[in-house]
């Protein structure tokens, strides 16, 4: 049974923006891309940096520490030095709220 957690209002983010959240104690980076929402674990898989502090461009977020790129939709690594995927979390919109599931 998927447990959904309330995360943010749908109008809290514009396209290509990101915000850092703490969902049940788990750091989550919430992104908006072309009107859709995506959530990644808010920690780079390479270094100890928050992806929500990163730079969003062309569907990727760039880690602020080492400039490695992560695909926002999948968490897949897109450039060095990142070689491991970042965990991505399911997201749904209910009314004007964005919800995130931490389990799968």
């Amino acid at each position: 049974m998927t447990e959904w957690h309330d995360a943010a209002a749908t109008d809290a983010l514009s396209d290509d923006e990101v915000m850092g959240l703490s969902i049940a104690g788990v750091p989550v980076a919430l992104f908006r891309q072309e009107g859709a929402f995506f959530a990644l674990h808010d920690l780079c898989s390479h270094g100890a940096a928050r992806l929500s502090d990163g730079f969003v461009e062309n569907g990727c977020v760039e880690c602020p520490l080492h400039q490695g790129l992560v695909d926002i939709r999948s968490g897949a690594p897109c450039s060095a030095p990142i070689t491991e995927p970042v965990r991505s979390y399911p997201v749904r919109v209910v009314g004007d709220r964005v919800e995130i599931a931490l389990n799968r």
Partner: peptide
């Protein structure tokens, strides 16, 4: 201010 620098780099 890494973000300022990143935008400047672009």
């Amino acid at each position: 201010a890494a973000r300022d620098l990143r935008v400047l780099r672009k």
